[in-house]
C-alpha cells in the first residue's frame, strides 16, 4: 500500500514537477527567466527537456522503483555529471523534493505522524544514495571514454606495434 506521502505526490504530480524542474534548472542559472527555463522546444533546449522527462519519470514511478526509475534518474544525472557543479549539488535533487512535499503538506493541511516522516526521510536518503551511484557511474564513464579515445586515435599504430 502507498504511503500518505506517495499519495500526496501522486495527487499533485503536475505542480510538484513544475516546481522541482525550476529548482533543478536554477542550479544552472540564477536568472529567473533564463532561456534554459523558458525555451520548451525539445531540440532547442535539451537540458530542460531531459530534466523534465527524467523528473516526470521519477514522479510517475515513485511508488515502484523499477527499471523506469533507474532510467529516469540516469537521464538526469547524465546531464549533471558533466557540468561544473560539485557532486553534492548535482545529487541533491531528492532533498529538493522533500522540501517541496513538506511545503505542499503544510499548504494542504495534511498532517503526518513522526513515524511516517521518519519513513519518508529514510526513503529520501536511500534515493539520494542511488542518485549518487548513478552520478558516479557517469563520471567513471567519462574516464573510460578518455582511455578508449586515446587507444582508438592511434589504433593502426598500436596494431602495427602489436599492442
Amino acid at each position: 500500500m502507498s504511503s500518505p506521502f506517495e499519495l500526496l505526490i501522486a495527487q499533485h504530480k503536475k505542480a510538484i514537477l513544475e516546481q522541482w524542474l525550476m529548482l533543478r534548472l536554477g542550479i544552472f542559472s540564477s536568472q529567473k527567466k533564463s532561456l534554459l527555463m523558458t525555451q520548451t522546444d525539445q531540440f532547442q533546449n535539451p537540458i530542460r527537456h531531459e530534466m523534465e522527462q527524467g523528473l516526470a519519470g521519477i514522479l510517475a514511478d515513485f511508488e515502484n522503483r523499477g527499471a523506469q526509475f533507474s532510467e529516469a534518474l540516469d537521464q538526469i544525472t547524465r546531464v549533471l555529471a558533466i557540468q561544473d557543479f560539485p557532486p553534492s549539488k548535482a545529487t541533491a535533487l531528492f532533498y529538493e523534493l522533500k522540501e517541496i512535499v513538506r511545503e505542499l503538506a503544510k499548504k494542504n493541511d495534511v498532517g503526518f505522524g513522526a513515524k511516517e516522516w521518519k519513513k519518508f526521510n529514510h526513503q529520501i536518503e536511500q534515493l539520494t544514495l542511488t542518485a549518487f551511484d548513478s552520478y558516479v557511474d557517469h563520471r567513471e564513464k567519462i574516464y573510460q571514454i578518455k582511455v578508449d579515445e586515446s587507444k582508438n586515435r592511434a589504433f593502426m599504430l598500436l596494431k602495427k606495434a602489436g599492442l
Binding site: N152, R153, A154, F155, M156, L157
Partner: peptide
Amino acid sequence: DVFGDPGI
C-alpha cells in the same frame, strides 16, 4: 582515416 578507429 589512415590511423584511427573507426576512420580506417
